[in-house]
Amino acid sequence: MDQLNKYFKRSICSLFIITLFFTFFAQDTQAFSDQVIQRGATGDDVIELQARLQNYGYYHGTIDGVFGWNTYWAVRNFQHDFGLEVDGLVGDELKKKLEQYTHFDREYVYSHLEKGKDPDTYGPKKGPEGLPPPGQRDPGNLDERAQKEKQQKGRQREEGQVQRQPEREKAPAQPAPEGGAAPQETPQSAQRERNIGHVAPAVNIPAGFSENDIQLMANAVYGEARGEPYIGQVAIAAVIINRVNSAEFPNTVSGVIFEPRAFTAVADGQIWLQPDETSRRAVMDAINGWDPTGGLTHYYNPATATSQWMFNKQPVKRIGKHLFVR
């Protein structure tokens, strides 16, 4: 009885260790969340996706955590080569394939992301060496695959997990990647070489604007309309954009904002106050196309306005203290 008990304890103990190991292991390799990843997304899933695609030679851009066009084409090429539906969506099946065939050195990538301005190569250094170009690959020959199988064997033995078994058996029968849609080799490979493997964080910015435009507009909105209702702040930002698009005003955000006598906050220096999150969000909404003014380019505060000609304009909308006029 004692013996049995001891044996039982030991097995519990080893089971515990195995579970612990598996938990750790699972975190390491199955880091993708359950979410389907699509173009425009940002965050950790995208970083892993880009790193894995780069590791297998499909992605040559910067690992920046933003699912942009280059990532999109890389996903589609990968889907094409592996006989999956080519839709640019990263779902379970694609994630499994990526986990099976590619390697993701989380620590390495993240340490470089934190440094930010120290671009270094990821793919070529950490990726399998002596690979044929994408399109002529036989997944069976890869070091990773061997590695992966070893890991899987370990896991099956310890966990009795069969979940991954079918995947593994299916693997050899997979259509070998075909040529054609693989990332194109360019004559300017020198230039591309420089782009390989940059790890640097980035953000989505609406087309036609830069992060600095947004910053400058947030300054202007804060200077002009802090304390106003949210919609009123969006409206000020929209007026700036409407002016940029209007033939009567300068064609740039900075041109419109710094036009002499255009905004009181610029004339008295209040534009240089530190804007808050609300004004920034208002600017983003306006840039993304929300325009409470319906295309207007003028507004004034009836309580403080001094220019006579403003009063002759046709009032359209009042938001908070400001009267928006045509």
Binding site: S210, L216, T252, S254, G255, F258, V266, A267, D268
Partner: peptide, 24 residues
């Protein structure tokens, strides 16, 4: 003087930010 300084500063800022826009 302050007002002149702000005006001068604004026109420098404008030129510089416009230059950035042009390059983009």
């Amino acid at each position: 003087k302050n007002s002149v300084l702000i005006k001068a500063e604004n026109s420098y800022q404008r030129a510089f930010h416009d230059l950035n826009n042009d390059m983009a």
